[in-house]
């Protein structure tokens, strides 16, 4: 199952809620303001790294680029473009958008 998160974790609970509820072996894709959850040195970095033991975390490159934080992404988070986003929705059997 692919989870998408589109909210900043400093504003809303979507990312933490997603990390708490996602099943082992699933993937989380950070899009839109959700990409702020992938920023290095933030108060949520440890939680994100902890989640990465059980799930793969991806971030959408266009959203990182536009926000000026592509160079600040936590090691281990994989960057994808929209083609990669589509591929993830194909690879995983369904999508849960944590709106």
């Amino acid at each position: 199952m692919l989870h998408t998160v589109n909210k900043s974790p400093f504003d809303r609970n979507s990312l933490e809620r997603c990390m708490r509820t996602c099943d082992k072996g699933s993937a989380i894709l950070l899009i839109e303001d959700g990409v702020y959850g992938g920023i290095k040195g933030s108060v949520i970095e440890d939680k994100v790294k902890g989640a990465m033991k059980d799930v793969k975390i991806y971030a959408l490159e266009a959203d990182l680029d536009s926000r000026g934080i592509k160079g600040r992404v936590i090691d281990g988070i994989q960057l994808v473009d929209y083609n990669g986003f589509v591929d993830l929705t194909v690879e995983y059997d369904k999508v849960q958008s944590w709106l």
């Binding site: 199952m1 099943d23 699933s26 849960q96």
Partner: peptide, 18 residues
């Protein structure tokens, strides 16, 4: 429980989010 929610979600075919 949260754990049960996780399990139920994985068993679905479609998730519509609001």
């Amino acid at each position: 429980s949260n754990e049960e929610v996780t399990k139920m979600m994985t068993e679905m075919d479609v998730l519509l989010n609001f």
